[in-house]
Design a protein around this nucleic acid. Structure first.
Length: 565
RNA sequence: GCGCCCUUAGCUCAAUUGGAUAGAGCAUCGGUCUUCGGAACCGAGGGUUACAGGUUCAAAUCCUGUAGGGCGUACCA
């Protein structure tokens, strides 16, 4: 429809001998009295043409040739909007098309099977995943689903480092707790890992090996801890319904010589210098394509000879480039905001193409408990694990709560509210709409209807306002999923589903008060048409929830009511 | 100090990326109702979009400044 109107408008403009190369923008209208689609083209062109926008709109409209089968009229409103009114039949023919191709509806092929790498979570195995990682995990997974839905071939990747300073501290922390459990008094240093899980790991080592590890250094302790913690992380991810295709260990970058080669490349291009015993990268002179320009040069090799984090990160991205991905998406928490511009600028300075890299930064999650902000620290013991949250909320609610806000906004996660809202909760609201439709379909079957007969229903019988509202909302779905894949956002889909579910709830509730509006009526043809609408609505809700990784159950099992007698 | 992000109804957030009267949920108040699944629906109140300027037909959205908050600003990752 948009391309049709766009073509007609351009014809009208050329017959006015106005040239306009840009895209003509259409917006859905907020109110039916403004028609179905509106364009601002007259307002945009008024100035260059030096004409009053309403007058220009009038000229355009009178030169417009519209097929009344599609659009019944074009009207000028406001400061020069041109509003288009669909022929009501247009809704029905579109609905029929959706019905026929319901499996493909909302899916796209513009990804053309291009390879996309999505890196997310990437937490080192130094402890359980925090809720911040949880946000990133769900965000990354849904982005991957959105891209798959758009026809891309997606690789989910998790990058980790089990060798650095932090892992050494982890091993050392376990070792110290081990000695403590053996009855020795220990001096637990600052900035080591204080979480209770460290003691648990030490205890399991003690149970298995008694005091025979007393002479060992941190390494075997670290290895045991890493294995246990990584297992936990994978278990939690599995509970969240997230599976990675690749776990990339930073260690391989050293073993394969990628890091050495990178250093050599920088030196050959004379992009480094030595100062204070360290190797510095001339970042202040680099061209920054992503993020703000660095003011200072950055160290890439410490005076101890160890690389800083930027160097392996750059080497890691080189492997992503080498593996031939068409697009590379990095998802980081806000604490990495300063890192990626340096990494990408460094690679660009070496001649790598970096324009196909997209970096998504998500803001932190603030966890509220009894109105108090829980300061999360991985080294301290005071955090709430995802496991605990999943126990009380379940994966559907947890996932939904973490993606219902834009990733660039701070997210408040109120524990009490999240639990309380299991009673009045947008997830259940949407799921319930799906379940209600399932129920109504079963009812129809039990009354002798054959659901497949609705394929031949006369959809023009869907003339109630509530029904037309639903059809219009359904028509928006492909545009939405298309846009999400371009802008890499997830939360507009939650908004859409809440709106669609809301329209449906209103529709079905209206049927309770007015028998004529019930889906299953004594009018056989009308019933089939309404069943068709229900089936498409149910399918779209299920598709939307599937992209969010949230289930679409046919029955809602209600939690134990906590009513007082 | 500098950089990035954020500030919208009492609370949590939307707003098709510059469009028409800024919308939902929760909370508050009032209604529907012995259900094709009430985890539902309808209605009311609640706003100087933090503040001050600017850009233009049009600003919550873009620019400048101010205030407040988050994250960085390491030879931690």
């Amino acid at each position: 429809m948009k391309t049709y109107l766009s073509d007609q408008l351009k014809n009208a403009l050329s017959s006015l001998s106005i040239t306009y190369d840009g895209d003509i923008i259409f917006t859905r209208t907020k109110d039916e009295k403004f028609g179905h689609l509106a364009t601002n083209i007259a307002m945009i062109l008024a100035k260059p043409q030096n004409i009053n926008p309403r007058e220009l709109a009038q000229q355009i409209v009178s030169n417009l040739k519209l097929n009344p089968e599609l659009v019944t009229r074009a009207e000028i409103a406001g400061g020069g909007f041109i509003n288009f009114f669909y022929n009501p039949n247009y809704l029905y023919t579109q609905l029929a098309l959706i019905q026929k191709n319901i499996d493909q509806f909302g899916m796209h092929t513009f990804g053309q099977s291009k390879k996309v790498n999505v890196e997310f979570v990437s937490a080192n195995p130094t402890g359980p995943l925090s809720i911040g990682h949880g946000r990133q995990a769900v965000l990354g997974d849904v982005i991957a689903r959105i891209l798959s839905n758009a026809g891309f071939h997606v690789t989910r990747e998790y990058y980790f480092n089990n060798a650095g300073v932090q892992m050494k501290k982890l091993g050392e922390s376990v070792r110290l707790r081990y000695f403590e459990l053996l009855g020795e008094t220990i001096d637990f240093p600052e900035k080591h890992y204080e979480g209770a899980y460290i003691r648990d790991i030490a205890q399991s080592i003690l149970n298995k090996h008694r005091d025979s590890w007393k002479s060992f250094d941190f390494v075997p302790f670290k290895n045991v801890a890493e294995e246990i913690l990584f297992d936990d992380i994978k278990k939690v991810l599995k509970r969240l319904n997230i599976e990675f295709d690749v776990y990339f260990n930073e260690d391989t970058l050293y073993k394969n010589g990628n890091i050495e080669r990178l250093i050599t490349a920088f030196k050959e291009k004379q992009l480094t210098y030595e100062k204070d015993g360290a190797l510095w990268l001339k970042t202040s002179s680099f061209d920054y394509e992503h993020g703000p320009k660095a003011e200072n040069d950055k160290v890439i090799l410490k005076s101890t000879g160890e690389p800083t984090y930027r160097l392996p990160d750059m080497a890691y991205h080189v492997t992503k480039f080498d593996r031939g991905f068409d697009y590379i998406i990095d998802i980081f928490g806000a604490d990495h905001i300063a890192e990626y511009p340096d990494v990408l600028a460094g690679l660009k300075a070496l001649g790598y193409e970096t324009s196909h890299v997209r970096v998504l930064i998500h803001q932190f999650v603030t966890l509220l408990k009894e109105g108090e902000i829980l300061k999360m620290s991985k080294r301290k013991a005071n955090y709430v694990t995802i496991d605990e949250l999943l126990d009380t909320l379940g994966s559907d609610v947890f996932r939904y709560f973490l993606i219902m806000r834009g990733h660039n906004s701070h997210l408040n996660f109120d524990l009490e509210l999240a639990v309380k809202e299991t009673m009045e909760n947008p997830v259940f609201y949407i799921q319930n709409a799906h379940a209600r439709i399932c129920s109504i379909e079963n009812k129809a079957i039990s009354k002798g209807f054959n659901l497949s007969d609705s394929a031949n229903a006369d959809l023009a019988l869907l003339s109630a306002d509530d029904e037309k509202d639903i059809i219009q909302k359904l028509l928006e779905f492909p545009d939405l999923t298309h846009r999400l894949a371009l802008v890499l956002e997830v939360h507009p889909l939650t908004t859409y589903l809440e709106e669609l579910a809301g329209l449906y709830h209103r529709y079905q509730t209206a049927g309770k008060k007015n028998d004529a509006l019930r889906v299953i009526t004594s009018n056989h043809d009308l019933t089939l048409a309404r069943l068709a609408l229900c089936q498409v609505t149910r399918a779209v809700i299920a598709k939307g929830l599937d992209i969010l990784g949230v289930s679409a159950p046919a029955f809602m099992t209600r939690e134990e009511e906590i009513d007082t007698p």
